[in-house]
């Protein structure tokens, strides 16, 4: 992860098609196209895991079934706690087979439809539920030295609680952090950087013009139609956080992808 920051490699988020899509072939083709463009562009493809609790296909199965070619250090797989142990182990095994080492380990947004890891599944003791902390420990135990494990940081959650969680995540083996979307600057992100000066931190840039979609993440209603320039925000993030990586969420591949080249100087 430090390498991505040193070499100014953007993280570009790609969402796999949802399981209930009626246009599966088109969705697969679009995913493959986005993936190829990210690889060619030299960026890191960050593939989500049932984002927002919506049942979608897995990143590793997409890569394998579509015959895509992940380039070294250019793929990051999101991995949450809403899997059976069998599926979890398969994902990890597939990552190794594909040479993918970067994982963003998160608790995740579940739903009724998604199975959830139980503590006994991964020999987690003293807890009633599996969070990213227990999942980190499991991955480190089962695959020592292979994966580079990152975690999420949410500056919109109660600060005390979020920092306490961060300490636990780091103790469990996390070596890098990706934040929730930041608009301009956020004092809690500043505090994160000050508290952990040696920790590689990547700030998330919201690339959709629809700022109101962030309402749930930030915890208050952002009025629909609130003016927002994603590229102006991106420039501001680079200026405010020059030592951080940048994760591009909801990047528009039709109108925005070609414009990001050269924006990280």
């Amino acid at each position: 992860m430090g390498r991505h920051i040193e070499q100014k490699i953007y993280h570009v988020e790609i969402l796999p098609p949802k399981q209930d899509t009626e246009k599966l072939d088109a969705g697969l083709e679009l995913f493959a196209s986005k993936f190829a463009r990210v690889m060619e562009g030299g960026y890191c493809a960050c593939i989500t895991d049932n984002a927002m609790g919506n049942l979608a296909f897995q990143g590793t199965e997409m890569i394998k079934e579509l015959g895509l070619e992940p380039r070294e250090n250019q793929v990051m797989i999101h991995l949450n706690t809403f899997h059976t142990k069998t599926d979890l182990d398969q994902i990890l095994s597939d990552c190794r087979e594909l040479g993918i080492r970067d994982l963003l380990v998160i608790s995740g947004d579940g739903s009724d439809r998604l199975p959830r890891l139980a503590p006994k599944d991964i020999d987690a003791t003293g807890v009633e539920a599996v969070t990213s902390v227990e999942l980190l420990r499991y991955i480190r135990r089962e695959h020592p030295g292979w994966f580079k494990l990152g975690v999420a940081f949410n500056p919109y959650e109660p600060e005390e609680h979020e920092f306490e969680k961060m300490h636990r995540k780091l103790a469990a083996g996390a070596t890098f952090v990706i934040t929730q979307p930041v608009i301009g600057r956020h004092p809690v992100v500043d505090k994160l950087l000050a508290t952990f000066p040696d920790l590689p931190v990547t700030v998330e840039a919201w690339m959709s013009k629809k700022l109101e979609l962030l309402s749930e993440a930030v915890g208050y209603e952002i009025p629909q139609g609130t003016p927002y320039d994603p590229f102006a925000n991106l420039a501001e993030l680079h200026a405010n956080y020059p030592d951080c990586g940048v994760y591009l969420a909801l990047l528009g591949f039709k109108t925005q992808f070609d414009l990001i080249k050269g924006t990280w100087k």
Binding site: Q19, F57, Q58, E61, E65, T84, D87, R113, P115
Partner: peptide, 12 residues
């Protein structure tokens, strides 16, 4: 029970 999640291979 807990339903299994369809795989892409299965869907295809």
């Amino acid at each position: 029970n807990q339903p299994r999640v369809p795989t892409l291979r299965g869907r295809l």
